[in-house]
Design a protein around this nucleic acid. Structure first.
Length: 403
DNA sequence: GTCAATTCACATGAAAGAGACCACGGTCTAGTG
DNA sequence: CTAGACCGTGGTCTCTTTCATGTGAATTGACGA
């Protein structure tokens, strides 16, 4: 394209009527004005948390439900409203929302507490201080600020998995030592069985109240989609059956509304790129594929070298013969590949864990099988569509610098 | 043929090490008046 | 005299290694029918 041609392209692009009216509505960060089909949960949580406005400590709440069931959205919605009223009536309330999954923000005890202190405007170094020192600073800070602190810990299961349940115990226990301030905890978890493995003391104090978010059913997702679509798209853009199919896809995936919305957005983007005026079922299918593909490729590319090497071995083994392979085979192959790549090979123990990590990411599927006299091992199959193997191998080859 | 013991090839756990990053306080050095 | 450079110590955090223990069914071999 020549310079002039490019100019024309951009001009044309500007003149084109977008099918989107307001794309932001379909993005994950968007907070709708009200939360559909969650009236019961909103009321319940609002009732539990309301005492905070009278300067009384609300019960700790534990919220759980699968991904995309509106937990985070609901909590944000409620806390926004609490903040509004508190501002209006000049009530001292502090609500802190932390996502424990965010790497390097709140995924360890130290970082969580440090982040909390930062929320109060103090500066804490990212490392270097002893943890109890940070606790002391935190303690002093809230005691001085004399507030009821509502601490919302999203994806709390991740935090406990990584750093143990002592943090929660410490946070709940800190109340007994606080004089002028109090802390209430709101734990949000995707895992339904999270509390089972918790220390009984922690469990009882964290889940003084429990709220379960059931998955949306297909009709509810349709409602949500229609609402969002009416704001996001120009009228008449959505073809017949699109919303319904979109909802059906999501309902199959345990009622994940986030996925449904993303699907609709990507379908819209694809439609626009093809300069079509209407989203049809065809684009929806295409979008479904694209999302899956992007997700897999993205996770693979962000893996460390060693994981990529291990994964490359798995794809090689699966490529050259059957459709499954075993830990021992992979490790043998891995060792020789490491020599070729001039990489220090890790121990089998570590590779075993790396395979488990790849399993967690959904890139491979593993299954522990006992082959009787021939030992016990993991049976590994790939977790992405077979049609993607060539592409993925290419990506891995370039990442690893293989010819 | 039956049944318990054996055996394989790892899985799974726990603990500890290596190395990167960082804060803090003390000491040294060079520049300033 | 003082600001800044430069240690040493002690802390967190991630990725690994080392050591130890667990595991489930095919196989083996003793046993009795």
């Amino acid at each position: 394209m020549s310079g002039k041609g490019l100019n024309n392209f951009f001009k044309e692009y500007l003149n084109e009527k977008s099918i989107f009216l307001n794309k932001r509505v379909l993005q994950a960060s968007y907070n709708p004005e009200n939360v559909l089909h969650r009236e019961k949960e909103v009321n319940l949580i609002a009732n539990i948390l309301a005492p905070i406005l009278k300067k009384e400590k609300p019960s700790n709440v534990f919220i759980y439900g699968k991904t995309g069931t509106g937990k985070t959205l609901t909590m944000k919605y409620i806390s926004d409203h609490i903040n509004d009223v508190a501002d209006e009536k000049k009530i001292q309330v502090k609500i802190i929302y932390l996502n424990c999954k965010l790497k390097r923000v709140a995924d360890t005890e130290y970082r969580l507490i440090a982040q909390l202190v930062r929320e109060f405007g103090k500066d804490i170094p990212p490392t270097g201080l002893p943890t109890d020192e940070v606790y002391n600073i935190f303690f002093k800070t809230i005691e001085d600020s004399e507030v009821i602190l509502l601490l919302i810990l999203d994806e709390i299961d991740q935090l406990v998995n990584k750093a143990g349940d002592e943090i929660i115990y410490n946070l709940t226990r800190i109340n007994t030592e606080l004089d002028k301030s109090q802390i209430s905890l709101v734990g949000i978890s995707n895992s339904l069985v999270f509390t089972d493995n918790l220390d009984p003391r922690v469990r009882s104090s964290l889940s003084e109240e429990e709220v379960l978010f059931p998955p949306y059913n297909a009709l509810q997702i349709q409602d949500i989609l229609k609402k969002r679509a009416s704001i996001a798209f120009n009228s008449g853009v959505i073809g017949p059956g699109v919303i319904e199919k979109c909802a059906a896809y999501a309902a199959r995936e345990h009622g994940d509304a986030r996925r449904a919305i993303e699907l609709l957005r990507v379908a819209g983007e694809l439609t626009e790129r093809k300069k079509k005026k209407k989203i049809r079922l065809q684009e929806l299918d295409r979008a479904q594929e694209k999302i899956e593909k992007d997700r897999v490729i993205d996770t693979i590319q962000t893996q460390p070298k060693q994981s990529q090497t291990a994964l490359y071995c798995i794809t090689s083994l699966i490529n050259e013969m059957k459709n499954k392979t075993y830990t021992g085979e992979i490790y043998e192959k891995y060792k020789t590949l490491c020599i070729n790549l001039n990489l220090r090979p890790l121990t089998q123990r570590r590779i075993s864990d790396i395979i488990a990590e790849l399993d967690m990411l959904g890139i491979v599927n593993t299954n522990v099988v006992s082959r009787g006299r021939y030992g016990r091992t993991k049976e590994i199959t790939i977790g992405y569509p077979l049609s993607m193997t060539t592409k993925i191998r290419k990506i891995l080859e370039s990442e690893l610098g293989l010819s």
